[in-house]
């Protein structure tokens, strides 16, 4: 099995009564940061739980850091994984200092000094009960815990959601620091596309349980653009290159592949959020 990919999912499916995660194929190279984006209920948390082995897929093959999650040896591989999961925390009766002691007894490679440095850096009170923490503090403690045992893979499920921009920026910086080591990989799910645009190498767009695209971020920004045209001018655009559009009585705004833009037509400033929104609109029309 190649270790060039930190995560490999082949034909993964998971069905619930009212939701199906369908035929997920994904190969995330080691040393990269990938952003998992999608609407509520798109299946982001389900994918992360499947990667952790916290949920069993109905079918498909899941390989993480070169090991199949179904193998018994995968429990040992988890020492190389750090995870911060949405609404899943340490019990509320314990303090950050006690979390440190628990992690020390859990991970052979837990670095107490590093953990204490993170507590200081993130200004986390050591002796305050977890239940008295704000969401920001809980997430920061989660990240300090996840990073202090030298993981090779960091899985973050909505780790920055609901936090103010200053804290988010601080956390994003710590993720970027983490990938300075080229063997370290991050998979982060978030609703905040601007955060993903800042740090990610790859973007995975999940919509209604299916991957719409898994692409390099720079390639997405190079390949697609927003154009705003009157309805008459829009007729000159190759329909094949239109990904998604929205119309009103004055103009048509569309995301199109750049190679389909007629000459002399001006592109609008295009963000990752625009690309995702129009892809979602395109999917709705299918």
């Amino acid at each position: 099995m190649s270790n060039k990919n930190a995560i490999e999912l082949k034909g993964v499916t998971k069905s619930y009564k009212d939701f199906t995660l369908g035929n997920i194929n994904l190969s995330l190279p080691s040393g990269s940061i990938a952003g998992l984006v999608g609407e509520n209920g798109a299946g982001k948390s389900t994918i992360i739980k499947i990667i952790l082995g916290a949920l069993q897929a109905d079918s498909g093959e899941i390989t993480v850091l070169g090991h199949n999650v179904k193998e018994k040896s995968f429990d040992c591989v988890k020492k190389d994984i750090g995870a911060v999961l949405d609404e899943s925390y340490f019990p509320e009766m314990i303090t950050a200092r006690q979390v440190g002691s628990i992690l020390k007894a859990t991970y052979d490679n837990f670095d107490e000094k590093k953990y204490n440095d993170y507590l200081k850096r993130f200004m986390i009170p050591e002796n305050k009960l977890f239940r008295e923490y704000s969401r920001g503090m809980k997430m920061k403690l989660g990240i300090a815990s996840a990073l202090s045992h030298y993981p090779k893979l960091l899985l973050l499920d909505e780790a920055t959601s609901g936090l103010d921009p200053l804290i988010r920026d601080e956390l994003l910086e710590s993720f970027s620091d983490f990938t300075e080591d080229e063997n370290n990989t991050v998979l982060i799910s978030s609703h905040i596309v601007s955060d993903l645009e800042k740090i990610c190498d790859y973007i995975i767009f999940l919509h209604k349980g299916k991957i719409v695209f898994f692409e390099e971020k720079d390639k997405l920004l190079d390949e697609y653009a927003i154009i705003k045209l009157t309805s008459e001018n829009f007729e000159a655009v190759d329909p094949e290159s239109v990904i998604g559009k929205r119309e009103n009585k004055y103009y048509t705004e569309a995301l199109i592949r750049k190679d389909g833009i007629p000459k002399n037509f001006k592109c609008e400033h295009t963000t990752l959020e625009d690309i995702i929104l129009f892809f979602a609109k395109g999917e709705e029309l299918k």
């Binding site: 739980k49 429990d75 988890k78 999961l85 899943s88 991970y107």
Partner: peptide, 8 residues
């Protein structure tokens, strides 16, 4: 869920 990410 968090414990499932640990080597237990």
């Amino acid at each position: 869920i968090l414990a499932s990410s640990m080597p237990y």
